[in-house]
Design a binder for these strands. Structure first.
Lengths: 277, 277
DNA sequence: TGTTGCGTTGCAACTTGTGCAACACCCATT
DNA sequence: AATGGGTGTTGCACAAGTTGCAACGCAACA
């Protein structure tokens, strides 16, 4: 819509492929060198491009800073939600998303089971930190000293016979979880409820959230639930990908793209699109 | 230099602070709403801006993707990253990598502390150039005349009682840093935070980047932090070695890029992206 | 010393972006 | 249901900003 801005912005993807000199930029835009120069200067003033010593232009650091800020404002929940819904549509069970905050682990999102028998939980409520699968994942990511400090501080209520009995057992469990990259809660909180959970990580690999699938025994056995593990992990990884900016967020706007396939040529759109490929 | 582009680019930092509606954007630019609308549309077409359902604009995914590519083009970063991670694993504190660009010193990589008390910083953001340990190293390597020119140009905000008070003190500090080959920031930026830093050099001995370890007083005292100096220097030297081609790159796995991918993350459905290049 | 290749500048022509005013729309009031 | 203020959106005429040109400066090369 705005020619000048349009051209200026088109420079950035070019530069993303690697440094380029004035001539190349001008060619790429199909404009005179002087025009390209002025655009580059404006970009430069804003720190979006950097002019290296050999007079080649590179993407600038301000771009990185902006993206970083953008990601900071990104809500894990916002990104995760559609994935949680999709997972729920696939397996039908209750799906949770939780974060660690001030020595508590809190549910921040939930998609209800489609089975009539549901487990009780509530968004914003602290989870049973010593037994919940999501809590194990979140705490397992802390540095060793911190982990021990937290473990000592906690109470270990015996909800069931399978609840984590004390700090030692908890730390051992955390070590295991940390190692394997996923966690379970098999009747540790309520006798008849099992969970499988996987971590959501940021660009640095830190666990920022954890998601789980929960179901009561009367619907599926623990073993059956465990068969969902790969799916849960894939979902968590997909969320991680978007959260860290690795995967471009699927924008609701259809990309203008040079789609080689005419829209009409697509298969009769039956499958509800398992994990968008 | 180019008004339109200038305005368009000014929108992005605004949006980085949080979502804004058309009116706010127009105000911020001091232009008519219709003008702001057209600029936003152009940004939107390029994916730099995303329009959420409540008709507020926020930074778009394309920006994040670009920044990601920009970082991949920084080869120091790529080489340094595994070293930074290893250092973080050893000491647990926040590790930074910074470069000098256009009279600014910017963080280009960061590995978060594993302790819950973290210092605030952001990749891509300019550091407090007059006090940061990494900034001292990078500026200390400039030729004397340039060093003085830069020192004169700078502001010397008194973040704390220990902040560098002015150009003279700064130049003296730079001379010392240049001499000893490492630098510190002991509460110069934030009262309770200390840093130790060491330079990364290219084959010609010029400082191309600097890395630091930072930790708040509540976690370790300044003296304790200083005991890490040899380790920090060794790490920086190792990076220098690889960067200058002296040390054969001993990558455990020829990882495609510095991908901080979590262990559990399989290739998350490769993006068709990249288009025909 | 001339030549080629690059980035840079001033300027006149005109394409482009601008502000305006009117319109369409949503939501909260009455 | 009708009203009113608050949004975002559109077409248009004007001029302001952007464009390409041609000329210049400045390297590196031969």
């Amino acid at each position: 819509m705005s020619q000048t801005v349009d051209r200026a912005l088109s420079i950035l993807p070019l530069l993303a492929e690697g440094p380029a000199d004035l001539g190349r930029v001008a060619d790429h835009l199909g404009v005179h060198k002087s025009t390209a120069l002025r655009l580059l200067r404006t970009l430069h003033e804003h720190g979006f491009v950097y002019r290296q010593s050999d007079q080649h232009y590179r993407l600038g650091a301000r771009l990185i800073a902006l993206a970083q800020e953008a990601m900071e404002n990104l809500d894990v929940r916002e990104i995760a939600h559609p994935h949680l819904v999709r997972l729920n549509e696939t397996c039908g069970h209750t799906v949770h998303l939780a974060v660690h905050e001030d020595d508590e682990v809190l549910y921040i999102d939930k998609v209800e089971s489609r089975y009539p028998v549901r487990m009780y939980s509530r968004i914003g409520k602290p989870v049973a930190i010593t037994v919940a699968a999501v809590a194990k994942l979140l705490l397992a990511d802390l540095p060793e000293s911190e982990r021990r400090a937290v473990a000592e501080k906690l109470d270990y209520p015996l909800y069931t016979a399978r609840s984590t009995p004390g700090a030692d057992a908890f730390l051992k469990e955390l070590a295991k979880v940390r190692e394997q990259g996923w966690a379970t809660d098999l009747g540790g909180h309520e006798e008849s409820i099992n969970c499988v959970a996987a971590p959501v990580r940021d660009a640095g690999g830190r666990v920022v959230a954890a998601m789980s699938v929960s179901a009561p025994n009367v619907v599926v056995t623990a073993d059956e639930l465990l068969t969902l593990l790969p799916l849960v992990r894939r979902t968590a990884d997909a969320i991680s990908g978007e959260y860290s900016g690795r995967t471009p967020v699927q924008s609701p706007v259809p990309a203008p793209a040079h789609s080689p396939v005419p829209p009409s040529a697509q298969p009769p759109a039956h499958q509800p699109d398992k994990e968008r490929s």
